[in-house]
């Protein structure tokens, strides 16, 4: 199913390309006319960075009609790429010489990289979550896991009561409790692997062969709960990553803006 390219992406893309071309041309012109093009590119870059930061402000100002966040995100992404190109135009290279500028460039690159990383995450993970067939709110995951565990333990007790055999209980205490305790197999879930399923079919269900029919029935219910928990775990990891990448992006962005402000002050005091 081919996704339609949003109009705003085309619009912003063309605008960004045109602006960059104009800036590139203008800075060439300024250089040729013995001016300092980095003033133009620098201030444009600064404004660009502030505009990028406005995306966060937009999220806090949902109550006023500031346009759709969708448009803002596209703007943010396009502007981010634009800023990277502009950064290279401004510094005239990949890596600056001054230690402070290196700090600034390093932060800038990290922000850009984390942004790209986050963007890719947000493109890749939602469908993986959807394909679990369940949907759960991130904040409710601990409660959900606790409830699944509670249910499983109820089943274990029921089984013990009903059959008088402790085989299932021993297996639960020895093996399954570890699994039900909290989210497990995080990396496999993040990268789309089925380590949880593999574990459940192996060590997780190792006691099954020693059970009678009544126990088997209840044990299979426990395994169903375990399979359900695997889905919850997947939600926990993937939703968590989709939130936590911002732990890199936002503090770094704050650093970049702060560093850029000081850079601007220094340039104005020392040179301009």
């Amino acid at each position: 199913m081919a996704r339609k390219i949003p109009m705003s992406l085309v619009l912003f893309g063309v605008l960004a390309l045109a602006s960059f071309a104009a800036l590139f041309w203008q800075s060439r012109l300024i250089t040729v006319q013995l001016g300092d093009a980095s003033i133009l590119t620098g201030y444009t870059l600064f404004v660009t960075i502030l505009l990028l930061g406005m995306f966060n402000a937009r999220k806090k100002l949902s109550m006023i009609p500031l346009g759709r966040a969708r448009t803002w995100l596209i703007f943010h992404v396009v502007l981010g790429v634009f800023a990277l190109a502009l950064f290279w135009l401004h510094t005239g290279g990949i890596w600056p010489l001054g230690l402070y500028e290196q700090l600034l460039a390093g932060s800038f690159y990290l922000v850009s990289a984390s942004g790209v990383f986050g963007y890719l995450l947000q493109k890749a993970l939602p469908s993986r979550l959807t394909h679990t067939g369940i949907e759960i709110i991130y904040d409710r995951i601990p409660a959900e896991i606790a409830e699944i565990r509670e249910r499983a333990e109820t089943l274990v007790i029921e089984c013990t009561k009903e059959t008088g055999s402790e085989t299932v209980a021993q297996h639960y205490v020895g093996t399954l409790f570890w699994y039900f305790q909290k989210p497990r197999f995080l990396f496999a879930h993040l990268f789309g692997g089925d380590a949880a399923g593999f574990w459940l079919r192996g060590p997780g269900s190792a006691a099954r062969r020693y059970l009678n029919d009544v126990e088997k029935k209840l044990f299979d219910e426990i395994l169903d709960l375990a399979a359900l928990k695997a889905h919850v775990d997947r939600h926990y990891v993937c939703q968590g990553v989709m939130k936590k990448w911002l732990f890199l992006h936002i503090p770094l962005a704050v650093s970049v803006v702060t560093l850029a402000v000081w850079h601007l002050i220094l340039v104005n005091v020392y040179v301009l």
Partner: peptide, 26 residues
Amino acid sequence: LEKCVRCDDCVRACASTHGGNPRFRR
């Protein structure tokens, strides 16, 4: 759900226009 990144921005936006209280459950 194939596009939703579960960021809860919608819920927060809802809260911001309703006295700090969300008015739907996602």
